[in-house]
């Protein structure tokens, strides 16, 4: 009898004590507003920097002479699991050797199908494409997500086979 009464009151005491322990934790945070972790996104756009390996979208690297390294070998197209990349190639005459060779006409990239798995980048033998660190991909029309990666008038760099 005495034991059960004792247990009754010790239960109450321990229960209330455990509640206060929890309140102490949350109370700590309410009194330390310096530890707030929220980032105010559109405002901090200028200072927001993605990590260099972040996979935002596939881009074809162009240098200042508007030249890229894509030979149109379509290794990336084969490596892609989702049919995200479509390479429409064209025939051209190699100026040095005079032989016909394959060049890209359009490098189509369907951003809406991309799972950002990085397999195309690994597959590329000439390192012509890379992942860009962009992250704001929303558009008003779905067709805007289908992109042509080679810039108009661009051509392949010298010496890339």
């Amino acid at each position: 009898m005495i034991g059960s009464i004792k247990k009754y009151f010790s239960d109450i005491y321990n229960g209330v004590k455990s509640l206060f322990t929890g309140m102490k934790v949350t109370g700590h945070y309410v009194t330390h507003p310096g530890e707030i972790i929220t980032q105010q996104y559109p405002e901090n756009r200028d200072t927001l920097k993605m990590f260099e390996r972040f996979r935002g979208e596939v881009v074809l690297i162009h240098d200042e002479n508007n030249e890229h390294k894509c030979t149109g070998c379509s290794a990336c197209e084969l490596a892609c699991p989702n049919g995200t990349i479509e390479i429409i190639s064209d025939k051209a005459i190699d100026e040095e050797t005079g032989k016909p060779k394959k060049i890209i006409d359009t490098f189509v990239y369907h951003l809406q199908m991309c799972t950002f798995c990085n397999l195309c980048i690994l597959a590329c033998p000439t390192d012509a494409i890379k992942m860009a660190q962009t992250y704001e991909h929303s558009v008003f029309d779905r067709s805007e997500l289908t992109k042509v990666l080679n810039k108009p008038g661009s051509k392949i760099m010298q010496g890339i086979k």
Binding site: T26, Y29, V30, P33, E35, I36, I37, T38, Q40
Partner: peptide, 9 residues
């Protein structure tokens, strides 16, 4: 207040 408890703004 809820935000303060949860380290939010």
């Amino acid at each position: 207040v809820c935000a303060l408890f949860q380290q939010r703004l």
